[in-house]
């Protein structure tokens, strides 16, 4: 094997250096060495030319545009996952109680919350309508209610056949 072959990436099983050269990821010094080798080695030159062709062809494969509501759908999934885990944490003592795995004591906070909700929510008439022209103010609880309504609407929207979406 002559000196030229000793440096030949194809001959000494180091073709990845040619790959890196084609990917322009070599240091300048190595790049210069490979370029010098390519002037003398037809095999490597052909290999590199083919590799460039493959990459040029791959460049032609453009990616598809991303749906406008990608983020919205992701945040919805995150919010749903967080709500589910919060709900599971909150109901855990109650569920364990009904499964008989726990005594009475841990249930009392849940009972207290239920009682508070019963009292607080029964005071307000849920079917009251907003007087017209009044400044709109939103309590934290109402934001959550609106959020839940929007989530349900989104669920119902998603259940429609895709053909119906054209009217969006």
């Amino acid at each position: 094997m002559n000196a030229k072959n000793n440096q030949c990436p194809m001959q000494n099983g180091n073709a990845e250096i040619l790959l890196s050269y084609c990917a322009r990821s070599l240091e300048p010094e190595q790049t210069a060495q490979i370029e010098q080798h390519l002037t003398a080695c037809a095999e490597c030159r052909a290999w590199a030319a083919e590799q460039q062709t493959v990459w040029a062809a791959m460049d032609a494969w453009e990616a598809e545009p991303i749906s406008a509501d990608f983020d919205a759908a992701l945040f919805a999934r995150i919010a749903a996952a967080e709500r589910t885990s919060a709900w599971e944490r909150w109901t855990s003592p109650v569920r364990q109680f009904f499964q008989g795995g726990m005594g009475w004591r841990p249930v009392w906070p849940a009972v207290a919350v239920a009682l508070t909700l019963v009292i607080a929510l029964s005071i307000e008439n849920p079917f009251r309508t907003e007087p017209a022209g009044q400044t709109v103010k939103l309590e934290a609880q109402e934001i959550e209610q609106a959020e839940r309504a929007l989530e349900d609407l989104e669920m119902l929207r998603q259940l429609e056949a895709p053909e119906e979406e054209t009217s969006l």
């Binding site: 849920p126 907003e130 109402e142 209610q145 609106a146 309504a149 929007l150 349900d152």
Partner: peptide, 12 residues
């Protein structure tokens, strides 16, 4: 209650 939800949504 759904009525509250709908009302809150309308307010928002």
């Amino acid at each position: 209650p759904p009525a509250q939800q709908a009302r809150a949504l309308e307010k928002l």
